[in-house]
Amino acid sequence: MEPRIATRMGDGSLVEMTRSEIKADLEEGTQQSAKRAKVDPLTQDELDHLLDIYASSARFTAVDIGDEVVMSNDGTGTKHIGNRVQDLQTYEQVLGIDIVELWQIDYSYKAIKTNVAHEGQAMKIAQMLCTNPVQYGAMPDLGRYSKPDGPIDNWSELLPLMKVDEARAAQIEACAMLVEDINFVADHMVEAGADGIDMDTTGAAGDADFLAGLTACRMLREKYPFLGIEIGMASEFVLGMHGQLEFDGERLAGMWPKDQLRMVQAAGGSIYGPAVNINTGKSTAWNIARAITIIKPAMEIAEIPVHVNVGMGVGGVPTCVYPPADATSRASKAFVEILKIDGY
């Protein structure tokens, strides 16, 4: 009887599968995503390599010596031990993270604007104590500008009422406010010494959210030629909540990683982070084949570093609050070895 190997489902649960079952899941994962994202499936060599990584009982796996990549980290630290600057020091000194990120617990640019002076002071102190690049990060989080949190009519309420024009107008208005807030926070952080700005989970509210990120990115690039600007996506596919928004004449709704990357490059981003969601009902082997298939076309045209989002619920990592290290290490190794990513 074929031996069974302990592996994970997309929800993190430990299951046992045979090598043949893992192989079948890898093949199904790449075929399914190739069809959905209209891209090529992985080659046989790539699937064989993924099978070697996933059909193993090892608690931990890793790339070869010399193949290490850069580790950036959105929202560094838990804020429970000492202070926020210590979080950054600990991640630099204890965990060996390459790029650390100062952040506020209410992780949105709108929320930060009101206490940016305090955040700037923390950044200044962090810069004095850390050697690694320290960036500041938050989410664009367009929904914050709609009622009842913000001043603008709520497009999620307008759309079911078929008030499509009003919903679109509201999103455009919110987009402009968000661009202003990202610029406001970034300006202060640059003054405080930040090495970079991270727009994390961009596109979470759809195409208008992504447009705000791209627009702010271009403005910041014009002002600060050497500033690091990282755009991490919310998911694999830009939702068309507006549906007609464009950047440089290209419609944003429906963009997959390759086109997202082209937009980020055009806007002047210095690091792009694709996010491919997890299907919790499928194995991690199925999910990694799917994620790599979707991201691969982006890697083929990348002119800037690509840091794949490899965390809870994205990038082949299970959706559970304690993502098991056997699953995270396999996903990380797979991305580095198959896609030659620049970091994660």
Binding site: A6, D11, G12, S13, L14, P318, C320, Y322, P324
Partner: peptide
Amino acid sequence: VLDLSDPTVML
């Protein structure tokens, strides 16, 4: 005993 190695169960 194997559950002890599984953070999803142990959570």
